[in-house]
Design a binder for these strands. Sequence first.
DNA 1: ATACGCGGTATCAAATAATGAACCACCACT
DNA 2: AGTGGTGGTTCATTATTTGATACCGCGTAT
Lengths: 260, 260
Amino acid sequence: MGTITKAVTLLNHFSSDRAEIGLASFVRLTGGDKATVRRHLQELEENGYLEQNPETRKYRLGPAILRLAAVRETSFPLRTFIRPIVHGMAETLGELVHAALLQGDVMSTVYSADPKVHGTRVIFDESEMLPLHATASGLAMLAFGPESAVDYAIAQDRKSYAPNTVIGKSDLLHLVRQTQAQGYSFSDQYFTNDIQSHGMPFFGPKGTAVGTLAVPVPAGRLTPDLRDQIIDELRRGCAAITHALGGTMPAAFEPDQPAP
Amino acid sequence: MGTITKAVTLLNHFSSDRAEIGLASFVRLTGGDKATVRRHLQELEENGYLEQNPETRKYRLGPAILRLAAVRETSFPLRTFIRPIVHGMAETLGELVHAALLQGDVMSTVYSADPKVHGTRVIFDESEMLPLHATASGLAMLAFGPESAVDYAIAQDRKSYAPNTVIGKSDLLHLVRQTQAQGYSFSDQYFTNDIQSHGMPFFGPKGTAVGTLAVPVPAGRLTPDLRDQIIDELRRGCAAITHALGGTMPAAFEPDQPAP
DNA sequence: ATACGCGGTATCAAATAATGAACCACCACT
DNA sequence: AGTGGTGGTTCATTATTTGATACCGCGTAT
């Protein structure tokens, strides 16, 4: 593992509910040596990717991140494209909708919208990274994304997140094939108990999936009717995003999607 | 220079008008070896910090950046705090206002708002990094920020950006003292020809400046009246941001700022 | 007053990762 | 069919990273 990856791995430990991390915590999280971790943290801090809370001496993500995000969004405003689409879907469905991109062997959220109409809601952490094998987003990506993603997923140890999580290699491959056949993925409490989720990919210029839309709902609320609505909206949304990306949907996705 | 810094330096070459960079360009920009640069780019790409435009094969900033920015903004919503303040100032003044943070030896923009009321406008690149010695933001930071910033600024070779740029060490120190005395900085076409800019720092919990607000205007438009308005707004804005940060303004800044 | 956990630092030999000259394939231009 | 511009690759050499050990200063819980 290269030094860059090690350093960047430190950054990846941050999430919404882990916004500040101290040196000792980092050592525990990474299993690395204290001196080494410290050197990395220091170098990241010098470059503005981290900053230290002057009171607690814990580290948090630094301002450099903001600048880079601004650059990316200015030049390639994916989030800006996706936002109204996801929002519209969330309004129509009355359910949480989220968009994610493939990032290595994991899905990384780009945007999510919660219509806040129900008493019980899916709690979704915008900054969480989603595993490929245990989420509707991930399965959709495995089914239609680059083959390397599948290789990753079957090669690595698959963590179990909930009682239903699919761990077995052949089970997973079956699930992927099923997803390919039906054109959308379905996670029946694979990642979180009591949450069922449908996912579908959108495509980039090369014709392989680059990201996914997914709609997680509390298990009790998923009627056949809602399911059909969700699939319909997913199809519409993915087509729209694919179009915005200058991408091409594989033939299988087109028939049910007449131009509005 | 450590490997991490080298890699991160690659990322820093991106800006709004340099959104995609090819391998050869990187080699030219960094002066490094092609194979080395390539390996760094690849490792960054594997971690989602870069992605390759499949058509041009050039590199652009990747989705990991978005996630991290979301984490930082969720846990430490500086941009969200600052946005309405900067907006309000821009509306009131009818001029561009921008907020920046100290990031190493450079100022990094957090937010800027352009009221778009005048025919001639300041063109400002949201993602540019501003040098400490040649901008109103930078001078304000030198005057009220950590001493290390001044050390940086006087140690390094100061690049000239415009005919007026202050290069001399003693000249710069004089300018810093003057800024400390009057409580705001003034850049008379130090960075860009025909642009005059006023800057003022805001403070974090430690009582040293962590960032700045600045208002650049086309040189012809700066009347004494406008100047007074700008200073007034800067004072209000910096006080507000400092307050939001849980920071403390040094005594020198308080008198003219009665609670509204 | 002591022991523990915290952040941070220094040293140094061994292990590992970074390096770069040379090379390949491709494309466009001439 | 040569030239020069891409992006990408190889591999022996070199230099950097690494981590075990030990230590400092600080706060706080025992």
